[in-house]
Design a protein around this nucleic acid. Structure first.
Lengths: 344, 344
DNA sequence: CCGCTTTCTGTAAACGTTTCCCGGAACTGG
DNA sequence: CCAGTTCCGGGAAACGTTTACAGAAAGCGG
């Protein structure tokens, strides 16, 4: 005649098990969590649990324990392979540590990003990795007052007390431009992402610096800002052709794929007539023809590190001072920047 | 001198608010949920909540309410644009209905899919949309005993009492093959996905049926099974070239992109020497050159419908008998299946 | 000024766990 | 057979909400 509590039909709970096994709920909980118990008790409880098809209620468990064993990753665009690479890297780490990963696609909308940051307070997940494309004052404020551990993938102003993992897209862009210069290109066009984003700004800086290095002058007619995406890359490149570039450097692989399509459509050969280079070295770099030269900004590496940092932060909440590491860029040369045609 | 309860420093709770506002927790809850209260009370509570930066604990709320306002979508591969399209479609519907969407990438691993199905029992989300690539007996059993509403995107054996939304890939594959035949191709190779999957089997059936229709004979040398992915498509196509096909039909756009790359690498022209067609009509169809003819299997539509069904099921758990709808395929013709070279 | 109705508010229980703290059972050794 | 240990198991509290219930306050007409 054990326990009162409700006895409804719904999902089995530890009460149903306790009743069926003829023990208390405390014993059920202990057995299910592998805490010592008498042989006999263990067996009865386990049998009852199996027969009822018991699954522990994660919500109740979280409420009691104060942790959900869930982490969140918020990225700008789930359709961009670069973030998919990060997801995989993060997933691998968090899964091994026994955490479930929740994915969030913010479409780079500031309001959405802030909402994610604030939602840390609702205790739905134990920590957050976020990859914002712009950093506003509101972001800084939200990061400062976040209700749980956060790791940022991207560049943060100094003084924000949050772990971050950065890409060096200034150096990365320069790498690509110098490579194009070395293969003999002199009119290097640049299809960049939105200019008011952190990566957009950095890539622009890298582009300009490298031009300088190479003794080339910055020509506004060779530069276009657009949003990321294959179509945008194609349109932008089409417009740029008026300025007769001998190379098109794109701020990511999607843009570069679009650029290649536009060039093909005009009957121009890659790389003989125009060279093309992208960034991110995502799966897309090897999707089209010719395979694209691209700058690997270490997305996988950044994802992995971010996840490691987050886990560390979960272990020792206020211990270490915020760390900030930068993944080095790496140029991957493929056919799209091969030698130019010797004639002309 | 209100309430006892704990008073720690942690996150603010309705207790902190109650104390600060000098009212009971019941009043706090009521005000926060917009239930009637006296002018004065409302103001005091709202001010206290704002000052403390209160965020309701979603876990506690879920425990009490028995629902999480979260739904799960489990897909085989987060890197495949077709599932990204589904995510977007599902997201749009669920977000509008006030649900958060959790994403899960199963890598088409049966164990993982079953785990997701079983995890419905842990009450972490209120419902599940799952897209399995194979259906084993274990799947059927798990679906039958699922602890919450499930909608399957994909084909299910008869008699499984679960809502489903199907693609007609038999008809879809036939559409593509007949189109290739109409453009004069007679040696139509087929790069298919794994043969032990439902889509794999169906596409094979469609391919064979269409060959029959067109009076062509099935030639095993023209058919390859591989896994999905650009690299696999390239390798498979390379092998197929020994059989001198004049068209390559691929079971999805990733394979088709790989096929195109392999053909380019051999110096073959598309479509003059070999035509290429894909399936899914994902963003990748327009990523390379030439743009790919592809069969739209209605991924967006299927995602939308699946979400609608799930929401309906959440409203009226046991009402309607399980529904099963099929999205019609649609052939999208692009340059990759243009006319063959007239010589040769 | 009294009793009635109508608001409003506070107490307490419940959601399903985990875990602290005892009391009792089972051993051990003398 | 008894005292001392050790081990197990049960009762109850707690996690942060929502909500049924009942009591207090306030408004009202007579």
């Amino acid at each position: 005649m054990h326990g009162g509590k409700r006895m409804g039909a719904g999902q089995p709970t530890i009460f149903s098990i306790a009743e069926r096994a003829g023990v208390s709920i405390a014993s059920v909980s202990r057995v299910l969590n592998g805490v010592g118990a008498r042989r006999d008790t263990v067996e009865r409880v386990e049998r009852a649990a199996a027969e009822l098809g018991y699954v522990p209620n994660a919500v109740a468990r979280s409420l009691k324990g104060g942790r959900t064993r869930q982490l969140t990753f918020a990225m700008p665009d789930i359709g961009n392979p670069v973030y998919v690479a990060m997801v995989r890297a993060i997933q691998a780490v968090t899964k091994a540590a026994g955490y479930r990963l929740l994915l969030h696609s913010t479409d780079a909308v500031v309001e959405d990003e802030l909402a994610v940051l604030r939602s840390l307070g609702d205790r739905t997940s134990d920590g957050l990795i976020i990859c914002p494309i712009r950093i506003t004052d509101a972001h800084v404020e939200a990061l400062r007052t976040a209700a749980g551990p956060v790791v940022v993938i991207g560049s943060l102003p100094d003084g924000v007390p949050v772990d971050s993992v950065r890409a060096d897209s200034v150096a990365g862009a320069a790498l690509a431009v110098r490579h194009l210069h070395e293969t003999g290109r002199r009119r290097i066009a640049f299809v960049n992402g939105p200019s008011d984003t952190v990566p957009g700004g950095n890539r622009d800086a890298g582009y300009r610096a490298a031009l300088d290095d190479c003794g080339l002058v910055y020509d506004p007619d060779l530069v276009v800002h657009t949003d990321f995406g294959i179509e945008s890359g194609a349109e932008a490149t089409d417009r740029l052709l008026a300025a007769r570039p001998d190379a098109v450097f794109c701020a990511n692989d999607q843009l570069a794929l679009g650029a290649a399509r536009a060039l093909h459509a005009r009957g121009l050969r890659i790389p003989e007539d125009v060279a093309v280079a992208g960034m991110d070295d995502s799966v897309l770099a090897q999707a089209g023809w010719p395979p694209l030269t691209s700058v690997d900004l270490g997305s996988t590496e950044r994802g992995r590190r971010a996840a490691d940092l987050l886990l560390r932060r979960l272990d020792t909440p206020e211990a270490a001072t915020p760390s900030s590491t930068t993944a080095p860029p790496r140029l991957v040369v493929r056919a799209s920047t091969g030698p130019a045609a010797t004639d002309s």
